[in-house]
């Protein structure tokens, strides 16, 4: 097998073709060079650095750095804290993303239906929370949630005992989900709404001629037409969920015992770095989490586009 294929491969090697191709290549490289330089600098280099970091272990107190191979990866995969944080964001993802995208879809369809008065106002009002920086939004919600002051406190006073405790250990994840939903419904609504806007009107006319009602039009025409946008919105939301950081990190000041330093994978990586000076282990956590996120997002994209075609 090898003895046959080897000469075949080498014999007719067309030097002319490769030469021509490489000349074309070189010109192409010239055009993409500015992009490639920046891409390498701000994208590839940090990833390479993180990968390199993850193969070592530095002990800051005694200045020793040793090569440990894949030990850090083995440690992350066996790290109960890491998995606890991972499954927490997974639970968050499974519950919060459908709620948020469902609400966004309903809002987009309602605005697109042309039956709303002041649709433009609705659109901007629903979108507005997205314009509020996440830090400010979380602080604001934090004041609403506080059960010694603010809205939760007033409710409890009205009810006579502590019923609403949004910052207690049992409820804080729900509370965070609420903040994230509030922040991102408008953003997703806008993605879906713009997809709806480009659906050709003849489709609606054809559906109407076929006797389709509003619901039927939505299910058979609108939803299939915006499948691509839905897949994109889902992927963004999955990535967002796995990267959950701002909201829990800020609420932590108000609920220090309900939100741990490893509440989400990103918080874990952050605290490993900045409280524990465990830069190598932190890099490993970030890489493992990045790989998991990429795989899940890719699977969703594959499934989404396969059905679409």
């Amino acid at each position: 097998m090898t003895s046959i294929s080897a000469p075949v491969r080498s014999a007719p090697a067309p030097p002319a073709r490769t030469a021509r191709r490489s000349r074309v290549d070189r010109r192409g490289w010239l055009f993409v060079a500015p992009f490639l330089v920046v891409f390498a600098l701000v994208f590839l280099a940090p990833i390479a650095y993180a990968l390199w970091l993850s193969l070592f272990r530095e002990q800051v107190f005694f200045g020793g750095t040793e090569f440990v191979g894949l030990d850090n990866y083995a440690a992350v995969l066996g790290d109960a804290k890491f998995w606890e944080s991972f499954f927490r964001v997974l639970l968050f993802l499974v519950v919060q993303v459908p709620v948020m995208l469902g609400s966004a879809l309903v809002a987009a369809l309602a605005i697109d239906s042309a039956r709303l008065h002041a649709a433009g106002l609705f659109r901007i009002v629903i979108f507005l929370p997205y314009a509020v920086p996440a830090v400010v939004a979380t602080l604001m919600w934090g004041f609403i949630y506080g059960d010694t002051f603010g809205l939760a406190a007033d409710l409890n006073e009205l009810l006579g005992r502590k019923v609403v405790e949004p910052l207690s250990g049992d409820w804080v994840l729900v509370s965070i989900g609420n903040v994230v939903t509030w922040e991102f419904v408008g953003y997703n609504m806008l993605i879906l709404y713009s997809a709806l806007k480009v659906v050709p009107h003849d489709l609606y006319e054809a559906a109407a001629i076929d006797g389709a009602g509003t619901l039927r039009t939505i299910v058979s025409v609108k939803l299939p037409a915006i499948r691509g946008a839905l897949v994109i919105a889902t992927i963004f939301s999955i990535i967002g969920s796995f990267q959950l950081f701002n909201e829990p990190n800020i609420l932590r000041a108000l609920a220090p015992n309900a939100i741990s330093t490893f509440y989400t994978p990103n918080m874990y990586a952050y605290n490993l770095s900045f409280s524990g000076q465990q830069y190598n282990y932190s890099a490993t956590v970030a890489i493992v989490m990045g790989v998991i996120t990429a795989v899940i997002a890719y699977v969703v994209q594959l499934r989404g586009s396969r059905k679409g075609v």
Binding site: N257, T261, N271, S275
Partner: peptide
């Protein structure tokens, strides 16, 4: 101190 809340914090909660 940074991990006090993760551990003793549970007792308080």
């Amino acid at each position: 101190n940074s991990v006090f809340g993760d551990t003793v914090g549970k007792s308080y909660a």
